[in-house]
């Protein structure tokens, strides 16, 4: 039971990280109709800049702030320099261009930081573990990630449903020609939305820094999961991103944790291990397929 709760927390934490990634991506998808494959690169930029500044200044908080700034500013620069040329083009062109950006940013980090992974430690005040329940010891840092992610979700909810900017963003998602006609500066709005998305990716990256390897190309592995989240949640919907991310995080973690032992109850152990491991890595794609059969446009499709 304790193990199950611990694995639930692990799934929740993975889901939160995925949410930070997919919130930005789904917004860009939904509002700007741009397929941005390079979203993982901003995750990587967040982690690299965060790691460097943290090591250099010794302050994790400064590292996080630098990471957010770097990811946000790079994102807006990319929007202005690259994506603006692509809005009227075909989706294929956007995919090609942003795919090219992945190579660009991966090589760039290698040129700047060298070929080996980077070191990033967590701050002393987030080190160690606490006993949540008798026998349930959980790392403080992972709890902090959960708290930060939930706060961001709340902030986004407030931004979208209670502020003028949020209203414009939602309007942009429904009908972008109309919102332009109503006198909203759609160019600026796009740049801001894109910057917000990449900033969230940078936040996910810098928070992943102390637990994962900070290395060139680290964004790609999480990017695939992020796409699964968006497809499940429905393109363009932040609510869908929350639900999709939590579902993917939980299914992936619980699958990895319990499928092999489930199979061991009725199969020989070496066979169960390999079947369990294979099925666990497929579980989220099975989930995605199931959701798509039931709701072909995702759980919360946001526009027509």
């Amino acid at each position: 039971m304790i193990l199950f709760i611990e694995q639930l927390l692990n799934g929740l934490q993975l889901g939160i990280t995925l949410f930070l990634m997919s919130a930005g991506l789904t917004l860009v998808f939904g509002i700007m109709q741009v397929i941005n494959l390079a979203h993982g690169s901003f995750y990587m930029i967040g982690a690299y800049v965060g790691a460097t500044v943290t090591v250099f200044t010794g302050s994790f908080v400064l590292g996080v702030m630098a990471a957010l700034a770097a990811a946000g500013i790079t994102g807006m620069a990319v929007e202005i320099l690259v994506l603006r040329q692509l809005y009227d083009r075909d989706h294929l062109d956007q995919v090609l261009a942003t795919f090219g950006l992945i190579f660009f940013f991966n090589e760039m980090t290698r040129i700047i930081w060298g070929k080996q992974p980077l070191f990033m430690d967590m701050p002393v005040w987030l080190k160690g573990s606490i006993e949540l329940l008798p026998g349930l010891v959980y790392p403080i840092y992972r709890l902090a990630v959960i708290v930060v992610g939930m706060s961001v979700a709340l902030l986004l909810w407030y931004l979208f449903s209670r502020t003028r900017l949020g209203m414009q963003i939602r309007a942009g998602a429904s009908n972008r020609d109309m919102i332009g006609a109503l006198g909203v500066n759609i160019k600026l709005l796009y740049t801001l939305v894109f910057g917000l998305g990449t900033l969230l990716a940078g936040l996910a990256g810098v928070m992943a820094g102390p637990i994962f390897a900070v290395e060139s190309g680290m964004g790609e592995s999480i990017l695939i999961l992020t796409f699964v989240v968006i497809v499940i949640g429905g393109i363009g919907s932040v609510r869908g991103a929350v639900v999709g991310a939590l579902m993917v995080g939980l299914v992936d973690t619980l699958g990895r944790a319990f499928l092999p032992s489930l199979f061991r109850t009725f199969l020989s152990s070496s066979y169960a291990d390999s079947v369990g491991a294979s099925l666990a890595s497929m579980s989220i794609y099975i989930l995605m397929a199931a959701v798509l059969i039931w709701k072909p446009r995702g759980l919360f499709p946001s526009y027509n």
Partner: peptide
Amino acid sequence: SDYAAEIAA
């Protein structure tokens, strides 16, 4: 990259 589930096991 995330080994939380394996480590708990």
